[in-house]
Structure formats: structure tokens, C-alpha cells
């Protein structure tokens, strides 16, 4: 399979993942087009986050194949067969993907600047000067140009999350995953983070996969909204359709419950 512009950047093929008795992904088939912005919504515990986590290689799927930019993620080709991926292959394909976490997960022993330069220097082998120049640009871009020397403990939640976004962007991923990135923030700090993500969405070329409870935001930035429940895609489509005129009963009752308050 050779990647070209019409091929999906991410493809889940019959992916299943269970934690003990609880099946969180059931034979999931799911594509993301290059540069597409997809929001996954659904009840908590429905497995939304697991989609992002298996894609980031934080969890290993039990079955099925995930393709990233035409390459199998958890497998590699051996002749005509797919065999479990070596660590080397996993690292190569993983390099296409970036992730922003609910709890930021910044490195507390590094300044904001070093949080952003560390991976480009050590993983991409970028010269330190170039990495710093790029990090300064990115931190400026997320409105933190004056916080370069600050440690995470000296930043607010919203600032931490913006550093985390800059850190993930520094690796130039083709797909960026946002895992409930505003859920741990005080309400007054949510806006500054959403603004940054909104700008990224408008800039365009990077595919974005978001799990969020911010329905207004999802409606605004998404090309497609996926309603996910009990390990399956229940319904998906453009935001106007999913939010405005959902077809499935489960989707309807979920939005009734969520949007009422």
C-alpha cells in the first residue's frame, strides 16, 4: 500500500481491545483523511480515549491492524504477511503521531523551552540551536514567548497545556491526538487552550483527532464528528448533522443529556 493524498493517514481495520472483561474497542473500522479534523464524542468509559492510546502505542490492540500513512503501526511486513512490529519499526511509525494529554505530562525538571527542545534534539537529532529557535517560535505561537525559562510548577494549567501543545508540535507529527486536553483545567483557563487548538485547526495540514467534552468547540473545529459508545462508532458525519439532526436514538439521548445543561 503506497501512500498518496487520497489514502487515509490513519486507518483502523477491525481493531479490538479489551481490558479484562471490558471490551473497549469492538472490531473498530475507522479512517482519518490527511489534514482531517475529527472529534470523537461519547459517554465516559465508552473507549474514546483508547482509540487515541492504541494509536499513540500506549496500549496494544488485541486484534486488528492500524495503518498510519500507509504503514502498519503494530505490525511490519514480512514477505506478504504481517508480523508483530519490532521496536525499531514501532518507533519509526510512531514518529508520525503526536499527543497532548489531559494532565499535560510536562517534564517538571525542565524549563518550558527545554520541554520543547528535548525530543527534537535527542530523537530527531536536530542541532541544539535550530531546536531552540523552533521552540521559541512555537512557544511564541501559543502565547508563551515570555515564559521560556519557567518551570512547569511556575505555570498555570492553561499555560502548561499550551507548552505541551508546543512540545508535541515540535516533532512535526502528521497526526495530532488531543485527549480531553481541557478536562483538567479550571473553567477560566479552557478558552486559552481551545483558542490555540482552533488556530492549529485553521492552519490546516496536520490531521487532528480530538476526544473532548466541549461540544461547542467540537462543532466549530471538526470536519467530522464521531459518536462513539460501547466500543463502536454509533454514528458519524459533519458536525451540523450529528449535533443538529442525529439519526440514532443513542446519539439523540446522549446529546439531550449533554446539551441540556
Amino acid at each position: 500500500m503506497q501512500a498518496n493524498s487520497s489514502d487515509p493517514i490513519v486507518r483502523f481495520e477491525n481493531v479490538t481491545k479489551a481490558f479484562g472483561e471490558l471490551t473497549v474497542l469492538r472490531n473498530l473500522d475507522f479512517d482519518v483523511a490527511p489534514a482531517e479534523k475529527v472529534t470523537i464524542v461519547g459517554p465516559s468509559g465508552s473507549g474514546k480515549t483508547t482509540i487515541l492510546r492504541v494509536l499513540m502505542t500506549l496500549e496494544k490492540p488485541d486484534d486488528g491492524v492500524i495503518w498510519v500513512d500507509g504503514e502498519p503501526l503494530w505490525h511490519q511486513k514480512s514477505g506478504s504477511k504481517l508480523v508483530p512490529a519490532s521496536e525499531k519499526h514501532l518507533r519509526k511509525v510512531r514518529g508520525n503521531i503526536g499527543m497532548v494529554f489531559q494532565h499535560f505530562n510536562l517534564f517538571p525538571h525542565m524549563t518550558a523551552l527545554r520541554n520543547v527542545t528535548e525530543a527534537p534534539i535527542h530523537v530527531l537529532k536536530m542541532p541544539k540551536g535550530d531546536a531552540e529557535q523552533r521552540a521559541v517560535e512555537l512557544l511564541n505561537h501559543v502565547g508563551l514567548g515570555d515564559k521560556l525559562g519557567h518551570y512547569p510548577s511556575q505555570l498555570s494549567g492553561g499555560q502548561k497545556q499550551r507548552v505541551a501543545i508546543a512540545r508535541a508540535l515540535a516533532m512535526r507529527p502528521k497526526v495530532m491526538l488531543f485527549d480531553e486536553v481541557t478536562s483538567a483545567l479550571d473553567p477560566e483557563l479552557v478558552g486559552e487552550v481551545l483558542n490555540v487548538i482552533r488556530e492549529l485547526a485553521e492552519e490546516g495540514e496536520m490531521a487532528m483527532l480530538l476526544v473532548t467534552h466541549e461540544m461547542g468547540f467540537a462543532r466549530e473545529v471538526s470536519d467530522r464528528v464521531v459518536f462513539f459508545d460501547k466500543g463502536r462508532v454509533v454514528e458519524q458525519g459533519p458536525p451540523e448533522q450529528i449535533f443538529g439532526n442525529p439519526q440514532n436514538e443513542r446519539t439523540k439521548s446522549f446529546f439531550n443529556a449533554v446539551l441540556r445543561h
Binding site: M56, R94, M99, F101, E118, H122, V123
Partner: peptide
């Protein structure tokens, strides 16, 4: 915190670099 390991993995650090740097 487990999140530190996950961030290191998401940024594609090698296992050695994860130990030594993070």
C-alpha cells in the same frame, strides 16, 4: 507518574533516553 513514561513514549524517546533524560 505514569504520565511521564507516556509523554516520553509519545515524543518517541528511546528507552535509554527515557531513563537518562526523563
Amino acid at each position: 507518574d505514569r504520565g511521564q513514561w507516556e509523554a516520553a513514549r509519545a515524543l518517541n524517546f528511546s528507552p535509554v533516553r527515557t531513563w537518562v533524560g526523563i
